[in-house]
Amino acid sequence: MLTVNSIKNGIVIDHIKAGLGIKIFKILELDKINSAVCLLMNVQSKKLGKKDIIKIENVVDIDFTILGILDPNITINVIKDEVIVEKKKLKLPERVENILRCKNPRCVTSIEKYIDQVFYLVDSKKGEYRCMYCDEIYALSEV
């Protein structure tokens, strides 16, 4: 079995749905930071069966709000001296750019491909977002 050492200081993004880790890695642009980063894929999990994990050493100031959209079950642990000092709860971001795509064929985004896909949070309980251009409302599971 593959083993990776625990980190002393930094962040562990845990309980990522298997297969989503690489997407999160790209969205957070972890390839551009200078610290040690580790992406573990298909790790055994009691809760999920399989899961992905990302460990980032010595960095704590990353904006994770976007992750709430991708997978609300993700947990973010802030590690200090090998101890979890904070568990960050994910909230749905108010505004999302270029993560969700509008499916309305009448929406201008269907023809003007260069514009940003922008959505605003309408209902955080229901996880509903509104397209900035056509006002169509979607549940997260739809987009």
């Binding site: 309305n104 009448r106 929406c107 201008v108 985004t109 269907s110 023809i111 003007e112 514009i115 397209c131 900035m132 251009y133 056509c134 006002d135 169509e136």
Partner: peptide
Amino acid sequence: RHPKEGAPRVAAMYSKIPVINAGDGGH
């Protein structure tokens, strides 16, 4: 006026002059 919903908003984003929506599809 444009058949696609939200087209006037796109125009406004890139415009230095006031843009008035004269109807964008059924929107």
